[in-house]
């Protein structure tokens, strides 16, 4: 099995000089391809910071951070942007573009990849929305969709380009328990079909069972790096 993410001795600081504050302490983590890893921990423990570092939204300051075979520590802004094209993001809020219909939003996830032709964009976006159960809402604007539907469009947007890595930050936080459950199951099914790795940050105990592995973070340190699901 290949390794998707390798984090070694990663430290991260916010602020400069006197005000500098360390938020991540000596993180070591390895995630295999196709693995679904859930990261839990109290607020302010540094989960999101680690997620943004892995996702190439922040540049890593020290240590080593290898994501999908690319070293992100010391990468330039342009390299980070390129790296982000291979990731799928699912945010707490759906963050759909309100001026675009569901299908236009999903297409935006494919337009980034110049190899994909116009007709392919069209069919893949349609298929993807059908897979998430929104085949009847292709041309609805986000404002006309329910919270769960919006989050499903966001998942379709994140997965339509078949990313090798999906990063999600509390994707169920804004949803009721049933839609939350549906959304996570959907992510799990689609990810298994496409064989992609998922790193998911959540507070939601109800969805922990989808994980292959759960890591816990507290005060900027990983406390249990390899807790098998059966141990909970």
């Amino acid at each position: 099995m290949t390794v998707a993410i390798t984090v070694q001795n990663l430290n991260h600081y916010f602020g400069q000089g006197q005000l500098q504050k360390q938020v991540l302490f000596d993180i070591n983590l390895e995630i295999n391809s196709g693995e679904i890893v859930i990261m839990t921990g109290p607020s302010g423990s540094g989960k999101t910071t680690l997620l943004t570092l892995v996702g190439g939204l922040r540049s890593a300051q020290s240590g080593s951070l290898n994501v999908l075979g690319q070293e992100l520590a010391g990468a330039t802004a342009k390299q980070l942007t390129e790296a982000r094209r291979h990731h799928g993001y699912i945010f707490q809020a759906h963050n759909l573009h309100s001026s675009l219909t569901a299908i236009q939003n999903v297409k935006m996830g494919l337009e980034l990849h110049p190899a994909v032709s116009l007709t392919e964009i069209q069919t893949r976006a349609t298929d993807m929305l059908e897979q998430v159960g929104l085949g009847d809402h292709l041309h609805d604007y986000p404002d006309d969709l329910s919270g769960g539907q919006k989050q499903r469009v966001a998942i379709a947007r994140a997965l339509v380009s078949h990313p090798q890595l999906v990063l999600a930050d509390e994707p169920t936080a804004a949803l009721d328990s049933k839609s939350g459950r549906d959304v996570v199951t959907l992510m799990q099914t689609l990810a298994k079909e496409q064989g992609c790795t998922i790193l998911l940050v959540t507070h939601d105990n109800r969805i922990l069972d989808v994980a292959d592995r759960i890591v816990n973070m507290e005060d900027g340190r990983l406390t249990k790096t390899a807790l098998a699901l059966t141990e909970i």
Binding site: E82, R85, H87, N95, H97, L112
Partner: peptide, 14 residues
């Protein structure tokens, strides 16, 4: 649209 633009940036748009 700042939030949407930030999302596009996160998706890898320059």
């Amino acid at each position: 649209h700042l939030k949407e633009y930030a999302t596009f940036k996160a998706m890898g748009y320059h």
